[in-house]
């Protein structure tokens, strides 16, 4: 969030509407070189839509306004050939379900070399050698033997590794990982998170990690954006947000996570559900579910404001910083471990 160095990607007032229903209400977001940014929130909060819109991947019926700049180049108005040079090359994306992103009738090696040919012009032996190197890098054992296999011959975790290999083929500046570990077993999820953190360290690429799992986000990210109903409601470093969540929604997300250790307690849910974008409540979209909402919240929509500690917050009744609640102490305890 510093303005000294030019950011890699800058989203300004990004808005998206489907059939006249607005789902994204002006997103401002910066990703610096080598940054690791987490995007969290419940399903339907606009986490994925933000990046699909930024890359021009939404269907034609979506109307997208605002500005998306990549290293000084405007993407929102860029013609298709320019966008295609960016997508997969400078900005790569991986998705939740790896087996449906891979082509079932093409050999894995061919799918990786295809990306190498498109983005780096590598062909023949050079492409094969590079593909084997990538497979080795993402932790596929015995890549030579597995080069000619099909995606069904790989497990779910390995398919996700292969997706990451294809994404890395263009040597991207930014990798967008959209719920990359949600469909995987916990042990495999830990492996993939470990791999992403390691690749980020080695290649220096920036990472945007979209997830509803706060635990997973805190493993690989340095800063976090919390989204609710198409808006950013809180933004800060992992340490700030995890030790002292200020927005009642962020706090609610933390409190809802069941604890593995300690005494068995009743879980603390957030009442109600994410509002339908067609029937957004007046005022703050979170106010109907918020324990701290006042009359003001039901009529006025709070703006995202910069806080003294460098974080941003969109709430007029934030959770007390020096709170004495047991919940706060509990979160803090785990950060300290």
């Amino acid at each position: 969030m510093s303005t000294q160095t030019p950011n890699l990607v800058e989203l300004r007032d990004l808005k998206v509407a489907f059939d006249g229903v607005q789902v994204l209400h002006g997103i401002n977001l910066d990703v610096a070189h080598g940054d690791a940014l987490g995007l969290v929130g419940e399903s339907g909060c606009g986490k994925s839509v933000t990046w699909l819109a930024a890359l021009g991947l939404l269907p034609g019926k979506a109307s997208v306004t605002g500005s998306v700049r990549l290293g000084g180049m405007e993407l929102s108005t860029a013609p298709r050939p320019v966008l295609e040079k960016v997508r997969g090359k400078r900005i790569a994306m991986i998705f939740q379900d790896p087996s449906s992103s891979l082509n079932p009738v093409l050999r894995i090696g061919r799918q990786i070399t295809e990306a190498l040919a498109i983005h780096r012009g590598l062909t023949g032996e050079a492409a094969r050698a590079e593909a084997l190197r990538l497979m080795d890098m993402v932790g596929i054992p015995d890549p030579r033997r597995r080069f000619d296999q099909y995606s069904h011959e790989f497990s779910g975790g390995q398919c996700q590794r292969l997706m990451i290999a294809i994404a890395l083929a263009g040597e991207p500046d930014l990798l967008i990982a959209d719920e990359p570990t949600t469909a995987l077993d916990a042990t495999i999820q830990a492996q993939i998170l470990d791999l992403l953190a390691e690749l980020k360290r080695e290649t220096g690429m920036a990472l945007v990690f979209i997830s509803h799992d706060l635990g997973a986000v805190s493993q690989v990210c340095e800063s976090v954006c919390v989204m609710y109903a198409g808006r950013i409601v809180e933004q800060g470093t992992v340490d700030q947000l995890f030790s002292e969540p200020r927005h009642p929604y962020t706090r609610g997300l933390f409190d809802a996570i069941p604890r593995l250790h300690g005494t068995r307690e009743r879980l603390i849910p957030i009442p109600g559900t994410v509002p339908n974008p067609r029937e957004l409540p007046r005022g703050c979209a979170f106010s109907p579910r918020c324990p701290k909402a006042s009359n003001f919240c039901h009529t006025n929509s709070p703006r995202l404001l910069l806080q003294p500690d460098g974080s941003s917050l969109a709430c007029v009744h934030p959770v007390e910083v020096a709170g004495t609640g047991a919940g706060k102490a509990r979160i803090f305890e785990e950060v300290m471990q």
């Binding site: 042990t187 492996q191 997973a216 805190s218 493993q219």
Partner: peptide, 22 residues
């Protein structure tokens, strides 16, 4: 299994990550 559960605020370091496939 217990070690692979991501705990918010706890970094990856020091966790036992089970190698190998399910």
């Amino acid at each position: 299994l217990v070690s692979s559960v991501p705990v918010p605020g706890k970094r990856l370091q020091g966790r036992v990550i089970l190698q190998g496939e399910p």
